[in-house]
Amino acid sequence: MYKNYHKGRMMTFTDQEVYNAVKHYLPQVNEYVKSHGGKIKLLGVKDNTVYIKLSGACHGCSLSLMTTKLVVEKSLRDYIDPRLVVINVDGKPENQLPETYYIDPEDQIELNKTTKERLLSAIKKFF
Rank of each mutant, 00 (worst) to 15 (best):
Y2C: 07
K3N: 12
K3Q: 10
K3A: 12
N4T: 08
H6Y: 13
H6G: 03
K7Y: 05
K7W: 08
G8W: 08
M10F: 09
M11K: 08
T12I: 14
T12M: 10
T14N: 04
D15L: 14
D15V: 07
E17K: 09
N20T: 02
V22D: 07
H24G: 01
Y25P: 04
Y25G: 03
L26N: 06
L26P: 03
P27T: 13
Q28P: 03
E31R: 13
V33S: 11
V33M: 05
K34M: 14
S35L: 11
H36G: 10
G37W: 06
G38T: 09
K39M: 13
K39W: 10
K39P: 05
K41D: 15
L42Y: 01
L43Q: 06
V45G: 06
V45P: 06
K46F: 09
N48C: 09
V50Y: 01
I52A: 09
I52L: 13
K53Y: 10
K53N: 12
K53H: 12
K53I: 11
S55L: 14
G56V: 12
G56Y: 01
A57P: 03
C58M: 05
H59Q: 11
H59P: 00
G60N: 07
C61H: 00
S62N: 08
S64D: 11
L65D: 15
T67S: 02
K69G: 02
V72S: 06
E73Y: 01
K74H: 01
K74V: 05
K74T: 07
S75L: 10
L76M: 11
L76V: 03
R77Q: 10
R77P: 00
D78W: 01
Y79E: 08
D81M: 02
D81H: 01
P82Y: 02
L84N: 08
L84F: 00
V85N: 11
V86D: 05
I87P: 02
I87M: 07
D90F: 08
D90N: 06
D90W: 06
D90I: 07
G91F: 08
G91V: 03
P93Q: 03
E94R: 05
N95T: 09
N95G: 03
N95A: 12
N95C: 05
L97W: 03
L97S: 00
P98H: 00
P98L: 02
P98R: 01
T100V: 10
Y102R: 02
Y102N: 04
I103Q: 15
D104Q: 06
E106P: 00
Q108P: 00
I109M: 09
I109K: 11
L111H: 06
L111F: 08
N112R: 09
K113E: 14
K113P: 04
K113T: 12
T114I: 07
T115E: 15
T115K: 14
R118K: 14
L119P: 03
L120V: 07
L120D: 14
S121K: 13
A122H: 07
I123T: 12
K124D: 11
K124I: 14
K124N: 10
F126H: 10
F126Q: 10
